[in-house]
Structures are given as structure tokens and as C-alpha cells.
Design a protein around this nucleic acid. Structure first.
Lengths: 201, 201
DNA sequence: ATTTGTGAACAGTTTCACAGCG
DNA sequence: CGCTGTGAAACTGTTCACAAAT
């Protein structure tokens, strides 16, 4: 069997594969089917699944539901619920309010923060909003592990520092900035501008 | 000098480095400075710049402005303006309307599309909105090259097919779906849910 | 004394090739 | 016979080590 460490690239592909399985019409799916949908080499898909320690497809393709469960289990997702917060309620941040975006996932938004006290009072949302001064207290009280950062670029590092010192373990960074964090804090960069520059070849 | 092909990982790092240079307070910056801010090994930064063919820092660190220009030139960005569109005006899509998000970049949003004709009529924006049926015509007329896809998951592949057949060359995909596109079309996946699952370890 | 530029060494990822299962 | 599981081979990306420049 394979190594215990699952590389990030494999994890990323497996998350996309989970989504693909969610809309796949048939019960059975082969590595060649997946390859046609995603553009990844069929051998790579088989190798990824081998890394996960999965071998339920011997010689006859995979059963969609069983494969989905096996991947979710191997990646350790869709288990107990995880608490998140949104930092920055202008622009993108406000768009995430009241959204069903996290529906059907293990993530729940427990709080929104903004340094503009006015905005916190005006906006409506299904979860409570707080001024940024209360971040440390609320994050600890609500046991929040993850943050989505949608502040203006100039505030990005400052807010990151506060999130880190409040004990957050992962940040989805929607700003263009490089965030300076301790090695144990995970960051995923999701800037639209940087993404446009990636495809601008 | 280095190979002509710049790897995607290097390109991603260089885009972040550009943003870092934008806020760096001093005129001079060394590979160790960059390493401290980003967590990347200093040797990797030097190697990246070597790949870009840049060697303006010999033995004395880099001049911020010169380095910035050299990177932008090597990546071929910040040159002529590029036209973009937003597909899907609910949720995230609407948040991108009227936003200064692309300010100071070479990208301009020229159009927004939605299959809901009502929404197209109600929303206000600094660029024109059209029903999705006009996508093919408008994208060609306005010479739009890039799209930000913020539709519901169930419409993602269908809208992608229309974008591709209208001649789009790159898509920023904010849905969770794997998009099936021809090899020459570039896709950057920016799903918040997938990102949360990446940092959920 | 620092700090880059550079290729070689090393580590990680993808592809290949094929045995073996159903 | 089509399809997976698996390790080896090929390839890509990162780190090291040090000569050269100031």
C-alpha cells in the first residue's frame, strides 16, 4: 500500500473528483471516464487513488457511491462540523452573507467581522456580526477554526495577525496579498486578480 | 540563461511577489527579505528570477522598481488592456459589479451575463448587463477574452461550453465543478468550498 | 562581508508498462 | 479482454553549494 502522506496536488484533484462524482449520471465510473471529464491522465487518477489506499475498483471500474465515501474518508472531510468566520464585510465578504454556499458541507459560518462598526449594524445575515475588536474573544468562544479573508489589501496582514493570535488554523485569502503566517497555519490564495493574471498568457 | 518556459508555480509566486513589492517600504529588497515575508526559500526566489532571465541584482540585492518592471515584463502582464466578463449575477457575481477590484490592473469588465432576464434589468452596474442568450454575440463584439464564472453549479458546464464556443481563452471558475474545456483554454479554480477543504486537515 | 547567479544534486510528481483480477 | 493496482522510469520542481561580483 501507499505512503501515509497525501500530496496537496492529489488532495486538490480528489476534491474536484468528489464534486464530479456528485453529478455523474451512472453508478459506475472508470479512470478513463474521469480522464475525459477532467483532462487528467487516467494513470494519474489510478495512482492518486492508490495513494489514498483505495483499491475497491479492481479490474472493473469504480462504484460511484463507494468511491465517493472512500475519498471523503481518506481526506478526512465531511466528518464533524467545522466553524468558520468571514473577515471583511464589504465587497465579496457581504456576498457570502446569507448564502447557501456552504450548504451540504461540514462548514458553518459562525461570525462575520468588520472594522467598520456601522457596517456591522446595518447588514443583515443569518449569523451574528461583530466589530473587529471582538475577534479574539468571539473566535475562541465559538471555537472557530477557519477564516475567509475579504478585507481591503491594506488591512490584510493586520487582520491575519489577529486571526492567527486568536488561534485560527486556516485562512482562505481572497486578497491579492501574500500573507505572513506561522508554518502551522494553512493559507489558500483565491484572489480573482491573481487568477486572471494566471490565465493571461 | 534559463529555459524559455516559465512553470505555473513560478508564475504564481511571481504574481504574489509583484503584490509584495507594491507594499514594500524600502527601495532595496533581497532574496532573504522576500523569504521572510513569504516563507519561500531564498534560493527558490533566486532560481525563479533566474528562470525569468532576470539578473539585475548581482551581489547587491534587487531594486524594487526595477525588479517589479522586470517581472511584469517577463510574465507579459500590465501591457495592453484585456476585456473580461462576469457570467452569473447572483451571489458572488453581483458582488463584483461596480467594484474597484480590477482597478490598477490591465483587466476591464465589459459585460455581465445572467440567464435570469429579470436580474439583468434590475441590477445596476458600471458595465452593461445582458441575458445569457446574447453571450456569443456580445463576447465577439466586445472582444472579450476572459470570463469569471459565478453561476450555480448545475449551470457551470453549460455556460462554460457557451463561453468556449464564443472564443473565450481563460476562465476564473468560482464554482466547485471541474470544467471540461479544450486544452487551449486556461482555467483557474477559485471555489471557496474547495479551498476550505484544502485547509481542513 | 553580503548577496546574487548557476548548475548539480535532491525531492516530488506524473507517466509508463504490465501483471493480475473479474 | 477491459480495467485496475503497482512499482519503476521519466520528468518537473526545489534545495544546495559555491564561484563571482561589489
Amino acid at each position: 500500500m501507499a505512503t501515509v502522506v497525501i500530496p496537496e496536488v492529489t488532495r486538490k484533484r480528489m476534491l474536484l473528483l468528489l464534486n464530479l462524482l456528485g453529478v455523474w449520471p451512472k453508478d459506475k465510473i472508470t479512470s478513463v471516464d474521469i480522464s475525459e471529464q477532467t483532462g487528467w491522465k487516467d494513470s494519474l487518477i489510478r495512482h492518486d487513488l492508490w495513494l489514498l489506499g483505495y483499491n475497491g475498483g479492481v479490474s472493473n471500474g469504480y462504484q460511484k457511491d463507494e468511491l465517493r465515501n472512500a475519498i471523503a474518508l481518506a481526506l478526512g472531510i465531511e466528518t464533524e462540523p467545522k466553524n468558520c468566520c468571514i473577515v471583511g464585510l464589504s465587497r465579496l465578504g457581504a456576498a457570502l452573507l446569507d448564502e447557501g454556499m456552504l450548504e451540504g458541507t461540514c462548514f458553518t459560518i459562525k461570525a462575520g467581522f468588520d472594522s467598520n462598526v456601522n457596517r456591522v449594524e446595518i447588514l443583515r445575515s443569518t449569523f451574528p456580526l461583530y466589530p473587529a475588536t471582538e475577534m479574539n474573544y468571539v473566535i475562541k468562544r465559538e471555537n472557530i477554526r477557519f477564516a475567509v479573508l475579504t478585507v481591503a489589501d491594506k488591512d490584510a496582514q493586520h487582520m491575519t495577525d489577529r486571526l492567527v493570535s486568536a488561534g485560527i488554523t486556516g485562512i482562505v485569502n481572497m486578497t491579492r496579498c501574500v500573507l505572513k503566517v506561522p508554518a502551522e497555519v494553512k493559507v489558500e490564495n483565491l484572489s480573482v486578480v491573481n487568477a486572471l493574471n494566471m490565465i493571461n498568457k
